[in-house]
């Protein structure tokens, strides 16, 4: 435990660990798939957009832990989390407004006239929520981690 705190006093140093890197490399695709499964399967089993979104966001956290947060942030880019969140809210709104344009009530999925419209509508909404949540988790992670270097002057 004292080793951890000794390290955290000089937080800018990133130590590569082959064990963690190899583990993350193997586990990450499965976690990502599981997150998508929870997101899409929320309609028929436990789970849903919120939980799935958090699990998908966790993949980025794992990558950050294994390959260095700075490297991962440069790879993901500063805009992607914000774009994800905005796109999720926009998608939710559009799914809701669609039936209004077709002469129904807000979020009245049946107005789409597709077979199983309600089921697909709910799944799309879950997906939109998943986008929002995964974007928020990723963005928070990068921003809080960036606070570890309080020297300033770096660009995102």
């Amino acid at each position: 435990m004292s080793d951890d705190t000794a390290e955290s006093e000089s937080p800018t140093r990133y130590v590569e660990s082959p064990i963690i890197m190899a583990t993350v490399r193997v586990v990450a695709p499965f976690v990502f798939t599981f997150g998508l499964f929870v997101m899409f399967h929320g309609a028929d089993s436990s789970g849903g957009g919120f939980q799935g979104g958090v699990i998908v966001g966790t993949v980025v956290l794992m990558l950050g832990m294994a390959f260095g947060i700075q490297t991962t942030r440069e790879w993901v880019g500063p805009k992607l989390p914000v774009v994800l969140v905005g796109a999720g809210v926009l998608a939710f709104l559009l799914i809701g407004i669609g039936p209004v344009l077709l002469g129904g009530a807000f979020l009245e999925y049946h107005a789409y006239g597709v077979h199983h419209a309600s089921k697909y509508g709910i799944e799309l909404v879950e997906l939109a929520i998943g986008l929002i949540v995964s974007g928020i988790v990723t963005g928070l992670f990068f921003v809080i981690a960036a606070g570890m270097r309080n020297s300033g002057g770096e660009t995102a």
């Binding site: 309609a43 028929d44 089993s45 436990s46 849903g48 309600s118 089921k119 509508g121 709910i122 879950e126």
Partner: peptide, 15 residues
């Protein structure tokens, strides 16, 4: 029958 999903929690949340 109304929402065609099998998780009542999701049905309430999203429909």
């Amino acid at each position: 029958t109304e929402t065609e999903v099998h998780n009542a929690v999701t049905a309430v949340l999203a429909a």
